[in-house]
């Protein structure tokens, strides 16, 4: 598979979201890749609401099986959630379980007026009824379960996608 250019996809995603931005639209990025992307979108769209960051470690559905193995970080949502239109941002949409966890966490901060999902890449393989409203690239064929597609960021802030075989 040809690795897509993350920078170009990022601009494409911003263009998709831009017509739908309202003055109270708030972005919430899912750590870590989704937050990098959200930071970029936040700047490109020139939003005035503060950017939120969500870490879904405490809401994952595989805690009972896997425990707390990852290194959880702070969830930090400085924007108003109650009554606000929220765009949830993640780098790669796969099973939909991360989105489910993020939605649950988001609702513990209040009841948003609507939540939309923005992702850079939809890699297929959904296990839950989740779909992205904004998506820069949908892969024509789903990736195999052994493959990992993730966003990376260099020291100078350049975004790139990396595909590895586990």
């Amino acid at each position: 598979m040809q690795i897509p250019d993350a920078e170009a996809l990022c601009r494409e995603l911003a263009d998709q979201i831009r017509p739908h931005v309202t003055p109270d639209t708030a972005l919430v990025g899912i750590r870590t890749g989704g937050l990098w992307l959200a930071e970029r979108l936040h700047a490109e769209l020139g939003l005035s609401t503060p950017l939120g960051a969500i870490d879904v470690s405490f809401y994952r559905d595989d805690y009972a099986a896997k425990g707390l193995h990852a290194n959880p970080q702070r969830t930090d949502i400085p924007c108003k959630v109650e009554g606000a239109p929220i765009v949830l941002v993640d780098d790669v949409l796969y099973t939909g379980r991360t989105t489910r966890a993020a939605l649950n966490e988001l609702f513990d901060y209040g009841r948003p007026s609507r939540v939309e999902l923005a992702v850079l890449v939809d890699r297929g393989g959904r296990e839950l009824p989740v779909a992205a409203r904004f998506c820069a690239l949908t892969l024509s064929a789903p990736l195999a379960a052994s493959q990992v597609l993730e966003l990376e960021r260099t020291a100078d802030g350049t975004l790139s996608l990396r595909l590895t075989d586990a």
Binding site: F58, Q73, D76, D108, Y109
Partner: peptide
Amino acid sequence: LDIAAPFTEVAEREVKKLPL
């Protein structure tokens, strides 16, 4: 100590509860 850090934030939420 590392894992405790993100838990400090729960007290500032509307719903002070995690499902773990």
